[in-house]
Design a protein around this nucleic acid. Structure first.
Length: 388
DNA sequence: TCTGGGGTCCTAGGACCC
DNA sequence: TCTGGGGTCCTAGGACCC
């Protein structure tokens, strides 16, 4: 039984990173501004802001103000491409510490209104409003006011019976919008939208659907579920059908433990293992040190370690290794990463390297477990690798 | 004018065990 | 010796999301 109808909100901060930057640089309000790029270096006092057209190098737009989006700049777009569309746009470097601080502030403010929160990253959350007294519009206004008072920023809110629809709804009236929908609104408000508007249909699935002339969610809803399963697999095909009909029973995930922690970097220029050995070695050590800090800060150890490499042609490979015992120190991480590296053919030049800690275990548990084993090996238990 | 960095989840094949 | 099947763990890759 699904019980009574739920009331779920999706709250999404408007152009979050760019909006936080505008708090620092109010004189840029109303202008096309893009946040992104590598250490562009903040302009000194009296210096003009750097323009997108003056940017050279690798990097993507992390966020863009609505003025920049109107020129065609989207997050994830390469900056060199963005510069063609909006050469005069201001380019600001990202300040992740500031965004994290504002993120905590808006979530704390929202929790005062509605405590059941699913964290969906730095700038968005789901809320369960089912048991919160008050009308949906009234609650949305209260949430927006709480966010505004805590951060001086605007957000957009969708309220519907489930997460799937609320996520779509919060996009419908951006920025600073409120959209409240029931199942009855499906044909008029949801079905005309492109399939891509559904959270879970990405570029690949959308292109494949389009190949079958299924462009809108309404067209997808009309498709025979058995046919969808045939072409998209049992799990995904069934989900496509349910999603197109706005059905989604997923509960909110109120807390979760991290499954992995990773650090990666794209190089300024492509590097070759032989010609750039020293540079790559330094980068690997750097990544491992940062990963070790992350693990220490969270009190975790890695039960497995993996590397990720991206070649100059953008092909990406990963190598993972389950460790005999959890590790957390930088030198241990590096040794394990090097063992993984040996399993990759490194003829082509590299553009990215990353390290990832998986199978995470709390450091106190891992330490006591290892100590117990070292102190008193169980009698009669022998390790086959001893024979090697 | 090529495409960041941090994640999650799913699939699929092979090893290994019962 | 052959055959079959199920379950779990490990690894690699890929889609997707923020």
């Amino acid at each position: 039984m699904s019980g009574e109808a739920r009331r779920i909100a999706h709250l999404d901060m408007d152009a979050f990173f760019a909006s936080v930057e505008l708090l620092e640089h109010p004189e840029l309000r109303g202008l096309p501004v893009v946040v992104g790029g590598r250490r562009a270096g903040a302009p000194g006092p009296g210096q003009p802001y750097p323009k997108l057209k003056d940017y050279v190098g690798r990097g993507v737009a992390t966020t863009a103000t609505y003025e920049a989006r109107a020129l065609g700049v989207h997050s994830g777009m390469g900056l060199m491409k963005a510069a063609v569309l909006a050469p005069e746009a201001i380019l600001l470097p990202a300040h992740f510490e500031a965004y994290a601080r504002v993120s905590r502030a808006f979530k704390a403010a929202v929790a005062e209104v509605a405590p059941l929160i699913e964290d969906r990253g730095i700038d968005e959350i789901y809320l369960d409003l089912t048991e919160v007294p008050g009308g949906s519009r009234e609650l949305a206004l209260r949430l927006k006011e709480a966010v505004r008072q805590a951060t001086a920023l605007t957000c957009s809110i969708g309220i519907t019976p489930n997460k799937l629809l609320s996520k779509v709804a919060s996009e419908l009236d951006k920025p600073d919008g409120i959209t409240i929908l029931g199942f009855g609104d499906l044909p008029a408000r949801i079905w005309p939208l492109p399939c891509r508007a559904l959270n879970g249909i990405g570029p690949k699935a959308a292109a494949k659907l389009e190949g079958f002339h299924l462009r809108t969610i309404g067209e997808l809803a009309q498709a025979d579920p058995a046919w969808l399963v045939e072409h998209f697999g049992r799990s995904y095909g069934a989900w496509l059908h349910e999603a197109a009909h706005g059905r989604d029973e997923r509960p909110l995930t109120l807390s979760r433990e991290p499954k992995s922690i990773s650090r990666e970097t794209t190089f300024e220029r492509d590097l070759h293992v032989k010609a750039d050995r020293a540079a790559l070695s330094k980068i690997l050590l750097d990544l491992c040190e940062r990963l070790a800090q992350d693990l220490a800060r969270k009190g975790l150890m890695a039960g497995s370690l993996g590397i990720k490499l991206r070649f100059e042609d953008f092909q990406t490979v990963t190598r993972d290794q389950t460790l005999p015992a959890p590790i957390a120190r930088a030198d241990q991480l590096r040794e394990a990463a090097r063992a993984c590296l040996k399993r990759v053919d490194l003829e082509r030049r590299l553009r990215l390297m990353g390290v990832r800690a998986g199978a995470l275990v709390p450091a106190d548990q891992a330490a006591s477990g290892a100590a117990r084993l070292a102190e008193a090996p169980p009698p009669g238990l022998f390790d086959p690798s001893d024979l090697a």
